[in-house]
Design a protein around this nucleic acid. Structure first.
Lengths: 152, 152
DNA sequence: GCACTCTCGACCTGAAGAGTCGAGAAAGTC
DNA sequence: GACTTTCTCGACTCTTCAGGTCGAGAGTGC
């Protein structure tokens, strides 16, 4: 139930690329400094994003990275999945494949519901939303609840 | 974004205790075999649950474990928190304490929304619900969606 | 006293998370 | 064509943690 540094970095870098828009490619170093991410580590992450087809890159002078798709067609879920694989696992297995014995049978439904609820946020929010700082209304409704901000 | 073996085991053991009801204490070994959990590992988990006040225990013949509270007053969230600590962290920090720079500012709201949505499931379902195999309607609605079952 | 069962610290092993390093390959510039 | 810039990518480190095992001890009931 935790978001890794890698996933966090990946989304932040992707948002930065989204903000840069269509113009010139953005250099790795600029991404690293503007989001305060270790450069070498970030390069690995960007490479993964490239391999997953989310990002494109060019080397050399005038080189850099840019988004492969328009920012409003890339969701946070896409970015997280690109670097972390499936978004919600139990014991490294997708919840729908797990068989529980006897009394615990319904536990699977709980994990399924949790996963569905995580998806409903991450698959709704796009990089464009983040740049614009305007969340979809379903997400906005959640952050508007004061209770959501309480540590627990 | 993954549930550890420990958390999974803890919930399953707790459900088993809930199913056993008020009568005699349940032995560790019986919990281990009925839910197929390594006994020694399970004992550590039960100890943690005891330290968190969720479970009580007695040693010796006729010894065993039982729930400290009625099964309908213990939620899955309670059990998970007892063994894993806070339920949704980013880079090991609670999301509300994170400061993002510039373009990524709104990312915090996304993590907050995700956490709220996870809670809304785990804090609703009680051990009694699991034993009865009847989920609260809000959770039932989620598992009823075929899309929730799709691997992704 | 004895069998039973929880208590709990010590230990182990492998994998994963979070980086770092350094050589190389493509792209542009002069 | 040399040179610089910037991505590419495998190899390596270092620490932590997940997941589990062992064994001695301490409380309980008979």
């Amino acid at each position: 139930m935790r978001v890794s540094a890698k996933a966090d970095y990946a989304v932040r870098a992707a948002v930065e690329l989204a903000a840069a828009g269509e113009g010139e490619p953005v250099k790795g170093e600029r991404l690293a400094t503007s989001q305060d991410i270790p450069l070498q580590f970030l390069e690995h992450i960007l490479l993964e994003l490239k391999h997953q087809g989310l990002v494109r890159a060019r080397r050399g002078a005038k080189g850099g990275y840019w988004l492969a798709r328009p920012a409003d067609e890339v969701t946070v879920a896409d970015v997280v999945r690109a670097v972390e694989g499936p978004i919600a696992n139990v014991q490294s297995m997708p919840p729908e494949t797990i068989e529980y014995a006897g009394n615990a049978e319904s536990l699977r439904d709980v994990w399924i519901a949790v996963r569905a609820n995580i998806r409903s946020v991450l698959e709704e929010v796009t990089l464009a939303d983040l740049v614009a700082k305007e969340m979809p209304s379903s997400v906005e409704a959640l952050t508007a609840e004061p209770d959501s901000w309480a540590a627990r």
